[in-house]
Design a protein around this nucleic acid. Structure first.
Lengths: 260, 260
DNA sequence: CGCATATATTACTCATGGGTAATAAAAAGT
DNA sequence: ACTTTTTATTACCCATGAGTAATATATGCG
């Protein structure tokens, strides 16, 4: 389709750069929004605040998102996508229960030190539409199940001392989730330092063997992912067109898109 | 003053019963409010909701509280008072570092399973007036310092293995605070069961000696305090009088009172 | 009873902020 | 250059809900 590249300029450049510019702006909105939502709370932060900080005006935001709630949900989704990647990576590794648990603790702790990660635990699901709320709650249960499964696996394969997987998972996940509440991105502790410390401390009481090494497999990007969580952040997001209620809330997962 | 008890009815009865009735209503407002604030979030729950559930109307609430924010703050204060009592009790005990830490973990966990306890970690301090926000943040720092101090004491007296008190305190407090997010008061787990389990699990990795007994001194009321946290809930709270801005936000701590 | 005080109701005000309509200013395409 | 599409702006609308004024109803009390 349209492969007439007769003259010397690729006809794809404009399309591509336009699409990229759009997604970069979209991303900038989410980064600004998650920052303000965490700083002031979802209800106190206004869309005017978000727009003003981006040097645009409120209605411009509606070229990229359908509603304030949509923005909230997309912020959450970026954090969740990161966690999904982490879990997929660990499931693919051949580690035993304790190894998988340590890897999860480490990567999850680092994620909680990002703003999109913190949004997963500091946003109130009740502020979302019923559909989006269901999606979020299901994802939270999924994370909880993963913790419990790794623990149960470890008990089964002997790498973890016998314990109640449910309460143990709550205890560990609680410690990690709380990072999203106290971590100051301008403070002294680096996300990696916290992640390493927690990976050791939260599992040493459970382990049947001493700690060997920081399993690096679970943190594909070694650095802290401050600024622009590069996960699945570049995915089209076509555009709203003239305003007209059309698409429902959104499909199963990912491939979210604005109005039109 | 006024001890003329010439006729057969104590002149104190009416005053007293009136004052008590008032405080009971005040308390009922707070219990309803904390429930709705936790269930729907502070901003989604309206004062009409609170009033309706009490079979009164919104303006009636202003006989007991100066503002919605005042109600929010008082909910938090009840949870905080309970924690203050717990810490005071433990400080008075002669236990060593590990003993004090275990006692705190146990009592704090049980508190987090109450609605007023959960309000301490689920309410956003940013929703409070600047003064009240300062009070809350100071109290949070105080709790954190207490955890660190008990841990440092334990390391010093040999009852706790060497560790970083700061991160260890964050880890333990995070686990406990998270209880306020997941605990369902209509679920299977009793607050005591959770408290016992957490007291053991969160400290076993740190202890230099095995666990001996559940230190009962820190939980004065053995039962779970479902319904009406009887702490410092009865304390006058005079009344608003005809509406007129008068008293400032509130003094140092406790002895809070309505408008005028 | 009859005065005073406390408590509650009905009927408002009014600031806030999400969302939209109409339209202008850029880019892209031809 | 001219047309179309995308992106942004200005100027609104309007639902919501906190808080208030005026007033009515209990309750206490001499």
């Amino acid at each position: 389709m349209n492969e007439r590249v007769t003259d010397d300029h690729s006809p794809w450049m404009p399309f591509e750069s336009r699409r990229r510019a759009r997604d970069e702006k979209r991303e900038a909105v989410l980064r600004t929004a998650v920052h303000l939502f965490l700083e002031q709370g979802y209800h106190r932060a206004t869309l005017n605040d978000v727009a003003e900080r981006l040097n645009i005006t409120k209605p411009a935001l509606y070229n990229y998102f359908r509603s304030k709630e949509d923005i909230l949900f997309e912020c959450w989704a970026l954090g969740q996508e990161r966690v999904d990647e982490i879990i997929a990576g660990i499931n693919g590794s051949g580690a035993d229960g304790l190894g998988k648990l340590r890897a999860l603790v480490r990567a999850y702790a680092a994620t909680m030190a990002t703003e999109f990660g913190a949004s997963m635990v500091r946003f109130n699901p009740r502020d979302l539409s019923p559909d989006n709320e269901k999606t979020v709650r299901a994802a939270k249960r999924g994370i909880d199940r993963t913790f419990r499964r790794y623990i149960a696996d470890g008990v089964a394969d002997g790498s973890i001392k016998p314990c109640d997987p449910k309460l143990t998972a709550f205890a560990i996940a609680g410690s990690l989730n709380w990072i999203g509440h106290w971590y100051q991105r301008d403070g002294a502790l680096s996300p990696d330092a916290i992640a390493d410390e927690f990976a050791v401390r939260l599992t040493e009481g459970l382990a049947n063997r001493p700690i060997k090494k920081k399993s690096a497999l679970t943190a594909p990007d070694g650095n802290n992912n401050r600024k622009r969580p590069k996960g699945g952040l570049h995915e089209h997001h076509p555009r709203p067109a003239a305003r007209a209620a059309d698409q429902p809330g959104r499909a199963g997962h990912r491939l979210r898109r604005p109005p039109s």
